[in-house]
Design a binder for these strands. Structure first.
Lengths: 143, 143
DNA sequence: GGAAATCAGACTAAATTAGTTGGAATTGAG
DNA sequence: CTCAATTCCAACTAATTTAGTCTGATTTCC
């Protein structure tokens, strides 16, 4: 039940963009440097976020990426869905009501559903602004 | 953030054993048949549950496995930890306080911690008896 | 003694995740 | 006008994890 590096790097990038919200676009190279990861890899992740319309790209020199909406209007759940496709821990409890013929007699399903709803609760309730704020507080503490 | 088949098959087996609690040991072959999966594979999972002392094995003919404790005294969290090693979605929020040097400035960590505690809440609070009961209700409905 | 079972562990196959590579298209700055 | 900085696109490779098989030894009831 691990979280992928995709999700972690991507989410962190969104939070980093949130701290620059309202300013100039930020290049992927800058975002990659902040996290100490490969620019090419992060580019891929950022592209997925753009496809989901969470980010807006500005092409050409001095270009980069910006949040499409205010940090308080983007939830962590949206970001993870853009990066991982779904937040479902198991197909049979996903959004797209995948029809499992045993759904009626499966003893584990009620648990997976319960767990899933708790998870989605946290994810859909936490915004990027919440995360950016936590970050700022922690940064201040460590200085 | 998927749940492995290991976890699903193993947990289901524990629930199946719960419905026989107090009776004779149940052979892996019988458990495997109930789920329609390979006996050899399930044997592996059951062995992990035995190592964690959740199940007790009875060797020899007429042998099999039994729950070591009453269904209401085994939590889903224990079962998953036995099968998957941990329930941590990411090392840095696991039990074994893995020391990440960036813990102080990592903007994502508070989220992972929050999510992790919700997840553990559900898992440690749901017992095998709860699951077995859900199963019985569902079975009755579908008959 | 033989059949039914656990127990043990190495092995293989499949799938997923992580990351790289190469290059085309766009655009601001000089 | 041209060049450097950048997004954008897609196919490729490598690494890791998960799923599942195979073989065989050991124990114990009948």
């Amino acid at each position: 039940m691990k979280i992928s590096t995709r999700a972690r790097y991507g989410l962190k990038a969104v939070v980093d963009l949130a701290t620059q919200y309202g300013g100039d676009p930020v290049a992927v190279s800058a975002l990659a440097q902040m996290q100490g990861i490969s620019e090419a890899y992060l580019e891929q992740l950022v592209a997925a976020l753009k496809r989901a319309k969470l980010l807006t790209g500005v092409r050409g020199a001095q270009g980069g990426y910006m949040l499409s909406r205010a940090p308080e209007e983007i939830t962590v759940g949206e970001v993870l869905r853009a990066l991982e496709g779904t937040t479902a821990i198991y197909e049979c409890v996903g959004d797209e009501s995948f029809g499992c013929e045993n759904a009626g007699t499966c003893s584990a399903r009620p648990l997976w559903l319960k767990l899933q709803s708790k998870i989605d609760g946290v994810l859909n309730d936490t915004t990027i602004k919440d995360m950016a704020d936590d970050y700022t507080i922690q940064k201040r503490r460590s200085e």
